[in-house]
């Protein structure tokens, strides 16, 4: 077990290094640089700024410094928001994205389990067909369209009522959170619903369910302690990639609902060529995803020895 965990951790660390390197060189291949502003800059000022950000050093030295600082957990200072540290930006805005992502995941998971179970129970009947049509629709419509339409509907609703029932945009309590989270989770929910339905059908037709029926289990008891538990397993294994999809897929929802999350800052930073913020955010997100995947892998290894052996090699 320990060798398995160690190997996973090591490959995770190498992956993070690879992400950092790829980001660094992709960023330095960009034409233009973040010091190019609207206003002309005197060479002296420019030289001083370049020195401050370390842009005057050779690329290899910059790379070494970047890696060294990254190991210390320091991503440097933002180019466009002067005197603001990238670490502070991440610390301030990542919890917002994480909150949104986790809520979206919860909504998606609960919704998918419910929808998948219902569809499987009523296989071929109208609830099944209706749900599966909704699933196909949710997969086919881009997230930003769903977000924009949701916002339009909220505005219409608030207009009808004559008072703001649901906030249209912004960030605050739960009232601000649930609509963006629902919109963000919808695609994942659709995907997981399909999976849940398939897995539920497989379980329902299995022999141990027949055995449970023969022993007298029926109704809720059969569903709860025999079908659901077994059907959940494949869905749970998909939660790792789902976390990845939700944390990086939050950009658009954050942009449209004006939520001060990290994704919105990333898009802004890219548009303004803010080197340090882009590199810091990418490495942070990448590391976060890798750690998630590794953690999920190790957890599976603990639960299921078969995985330990097949993936440990």
């Amino acid at each position: 077990m320990w060798t398995f965990a160690f190997k996973r951790l090591l490959s995770g660390a190498v992956t993070i290094w690879f992400i950092a390197t790829a980001t660094f060189f992709a960023m330095h291949a960009v034409p233009g640089d973040p010091l190019t502003r609207d206003k002309a800059m005197s060479p002296a000022v420019r030289a001083q700024l370049e020195q401050r950000y370390g842009l005057d050093k050779p690329l290899v030295t910059q790379y070494r410094l970047f890696l060294g600082n990254m190991l210390k957990g320091d991503f440097g200072i933002s180019f466009t928001q002067e005197n603001r540290r990238v670490n502070d930006i991440i610390r301030e805005h990542f919890p917002v994205s994480a909150m949104l992502g986790i809520t979206a995941l919860l909504i998606a998971f609960i919704g998918a389990v419910a929808a998948g179970s219902i569809a499987a129970q009523f296989r071929g009947q109208w609830p099944d067909r209706l749900l599966m049509m909704a699933v196909v629709a949710a997969i086919s419509v881009p997230g930003f369209v769903i977000a924009a339409v949701a916002q339009l509907l909220i505005v219409q609703l608030n207009n009808r009522l004559g008072q703001p029932l649901i906030p249209v945009a912004g960030w605050g309590g739960f009232s601000h959170l649930w609509v963006p989270a629902l919109v963000l989770g919808l695609g994942t929910m659709a995907y997981l619903s399909r999976l849940m339905r398939a897995s539920m059908l497989e379980v329902t037709n299995s022999e141990y369910i027949l055995a449970a029926r023969a022993k007298g289990a029926y109704g809720w008891r059969l569903f709860w302690s025999h079908q659901l538990r077994n059907a959940l397993l494949p869905v749970v294994t998909e939660l790792g990639p789902a976390i990845a999809a939700l944390t990086t897929g939050g950009f658009v929802v954050e942009l449209i609902f004006a939520i001060p999350g990290l994704g919105r800052y990333f898009v802004q930073a890219v548009q303004q060529l803010d080197y340090t913020v882009i590199m810091g955010t990418t490495v942070f997100y990448g590391a976060f995803l890798v750690i998630m995947v590794v953690a999920v892998d190790i957890a599976y290894g603990l639960i299921d020895p078969r995985i330990r052996y097949s993936r440990g090699r």
Binding site: F18, V30, F266, Y285, L289, V290
Partner: peptide, 21 residues
């Protein structure tokens, strides 16, 4: 292949898109 798969897709799409200019 493993490394390329590990890259966060949308982040790197944005990054590469900007890098190519």
């Amino acid at each position: 292949v493993d490394f390329v798969i590990a890259l966060p897709f949308l982040l790197f799409m944005i990054l590469l898109r900007v890098a190519f200019g």
